[in-house]
Design a protein around this nucleic acid. Structure first.
Lengths: 146, 146
DNA sequence: ATTGCATGTGCAACTTAATTGCACTTATGG
DNA sequence: CCATAAGTGCAATTAAGTTGCACATGCAAT
């Protein structure tokens, strides 16, 4: 997703020791142009590393907690993970294909939001705004599944 | 959620036979001011009816498929269900409290969105725009959990 | 170097939410 | 009244994530 990112730095900036496992997980998340599920990430890692499934979950939790990675909910049952918004990566909406489960990043400009009225009146704490477009992606639409 | 709604009509308008089970499920979804999870709905029904848990899931799937009910994803692991947008119920964003899991409906005016740029350029089919605000609700914020 | 912790990882078992397969029941048209 | 389809129930299974506990590793203070 990003050339400017040094993943070890990202980790230490987030007060996290840059262990091999953490770097590997973060690399996979970061080098993808679209968010991946924990299962996806584990499947990729498993091919070259002997990391445990649970460790992947725990590292993802940790990265989310420290704001390095963003947990994105889909129209499906699993969470997806992408690099958290930062100076190089503006927050942006996502598209979820209900046929193939593929999740795409949309450009930040493709959808504009104004939550000012909410901020003025909402009595709780607002931490995150998630915008997800659901539908059928180009490929699946072509195949003609309804 | 609505006084104008006759649930039996809602069902038959959606080409669904108005069975007791379906009406009961739809009533619970519709009479609530906020979306409920399938588990919540089952728990409520179970007290007065002998409906099966699986039947609740199947009815909810059916209602979603026929556009009567809206499946809303949370920042958590379960789906929530609310009456689908219709003439009486405008689409609106939701607030999800990451502490207690409570999901609230926000007024349609509290957040404004413009997806025109996306509509112009996106090559797939867009079916739904979901806006979810995550954070901590008033009550949980008061208790002081971080 | 040795001890003592805290942090990180692995493994097995468990939990939650949802789904599937199949049998039984009910409603409806002929 | 019968045939068929639609609706429902029950048991078993799956998917995704979580927990408890043991082992490992790194580092600081002796």
């Amino acid at each position: 997703m990003c050339d400017q990112c040094n993943y070890e730095n990202l980790l230490s900036n987030a007060d996290l020791v840059a262990t091999t496992n953490r770097i590997q997980v973060l690399e996979i998340v970061g080098n993808n142009t679209f968010p991946l599920s924990a299962g996806d990430i584990y499947a990729i890692l498993e091919r070259t590393s002997s990391i445990n499934r649970v460790t992947v979950y725990r590292i993802l939790d940790l990265l989310v907690e420290h704001g390095v990675v963003d947990r994105i909910s889909t129209g499906g049952r699993a969470f997806y993970y992408g690099i958290a918004p930062n100076e190089h990566h503006k927050p942006h909406p996502h598209f979820y294909c209900r046929i193939c489960g593929q999740m795409d990043c949309l450009s930040p400009e493709s959808v504009t939001v104004d939550i000012a009225p909410l901020l003025k009146t909402y009595p709780g704490r607002i931490e995150k705004v998630e915008i997800r477009i659901d539908g059928i992606c180009k490929n699946c639409a072509k195949v003609g599944k309804k």
